[in-house]
């Protein structure tokens, strides 16, 4: 089981950030997330493997300086 924005989601082997976002609505503006506290950006969503029991936070649209 993983935790995405304080909601539980079932985990599966080989799960990536990209595959998680596919299951959630309104994520078109999500280009950065935190995976267990570490920032991961959209170019790495497909290659980032999510371990079981992970906590993920979807960050809002990046607003710059």
């Amino acid at each position: 089981m993983i935790n995405v924005d304080e909601k539980k989601m079932p985990w599966f082997e080989g799960m990536t950030i990209a595959s998680i976002l596919e299951q959630i609505e309104d994520t078109q503006f999500c280009s950065v997330i935190r995976l267990n506290g570490k920032l991961v950006s959209s170019p790495k969503f497909s290659e980032t493997i999510v371990p079981d029991n992970s906590t993920i936070q979807l960050l809002p649209l990046v607003a710059g300086g």
Partner: peptide, 22 residues
């Protein structure tokens, strides 16, 4: 605390984000 954690990191969260987006 759930978003950019600016009270902890200021605006330095932008370094890895900008880096990863070229």
């Amino acid at each position: 605390p759930k978003q950019n954690r600016m009270a902890i990191v200021g605006t330095t969260h932008l370094i890895p984000i900008m880096n990863d987006h070229d």
